[in-house]
Each structure stands twice: as structure tokens, then as C-alpha cells.
């Protein structure tokens, strides 16, 4: 399957998805680790892709997101940002609201 189409489908199919270096249990970069900590504090379930295990995603995600670094968080199909923006939105309480809205919407569809 076309890599770009595959990435777009991943983003569309998962209400919350984190593209990261390593896994939530073993993040392999401080910035990805910070993203995981923030999502954990929000108590939300999320999908993740370890870009070290998916080199084609690592190479091509930037063509979809126009964002050159990892981690990258997508909520309901939209790029929220990297760990700086996640922290900023978490501190202002906006991230919690955004995530609560996204996971509720996911439940309704089920």
C-alpha cells in the first residue's frame, strides 16, 4: 500500500495517535518521553507508532504533517504539535479538553 495513504488512514482511524521514538514503556528520546508523560497525566488511551520500527513512516510523515521532528500528536485527524505545544496546551488545560472530546467522539462511533 502507498505509504502516504497508509499514514493518512492511521491518523484518520485513531482518535488519538502519537508518532514517537521508542514506545510508551521505553521512550528512546527525551521529547517523546515527555509526550508520553503528558498523555499519561491526561489519562487518555492512545495509539502510537514507534518510528524506529517504521522507517517508512519516519521518512514520510513530514510530507503529511509539515512537521520535521518527533514526537507528533494527532487528535481527531489534526496535528496538535510536538512536545512543546503539548506541554503548553496541558498547562493551560486545553489539551485535557481536546482529548476528552476526542475519546468521547470515538466511543459514540463504536
Amino acid at each position: 500500500m502507498d505509504v502516504i495513504e497508509n499514514i493518512k488512514r492511521q491518523i484518520a482511524d485513531n482518535p488519538v495517535i502519537l508518532y514517537m521514538k521508542g514506545t510508551p514503556d521505553f521512550p528512546q528520546c527525551g521529547f517523546s518521553g515527555r509526550a508520553v508523560q503528558i498523555l499519561d497525566k491526561c489519562g487518555v488511551e492512545y495509539a502510537f507508532v514507534n518510528v524506529f520500527e517504521a522507517p517508512e513512516v519516519r521518512e514520510n510523515l513530514k510530507l503529511v504533517s509539515h512537521w520535521p521532528t518527533f514526537p507528533q500528536l494527532f487528535v481527531r485527524g489534526e496535528l496538535v504539535g510536538g512536545s512543546d505545544i503539548m506541554m503548553e496546551l496541558y498547562e493551560s488545560g486545553e489539551l485535557q479538553k481536546l482529548l476528552a472530546g476526542a475519546t468521547k467522539a470515538g466511543e459514540r462511533q463504536d
Partner: peptide
Amino acid sequence: SLVQRHQMVYSALGDMMHNEIHAFSMK
């Protein structure tokens, strides 16, 4: 938006993001 602002910065940094810069944290 925050995403748009960071995208503007990354776009200004251009190819520096490939090799010279591994991480660019910003306000």
C-alpha cells in the same frame, strides 16, 4: 495557531532540520 507558528519556524529553518538540528524547542 500554535501548530501554524511552529510550522512557520520549521519552514524558515528548512534543510537545517535534516542534519544540523536534531531538536528545536521553542516559544
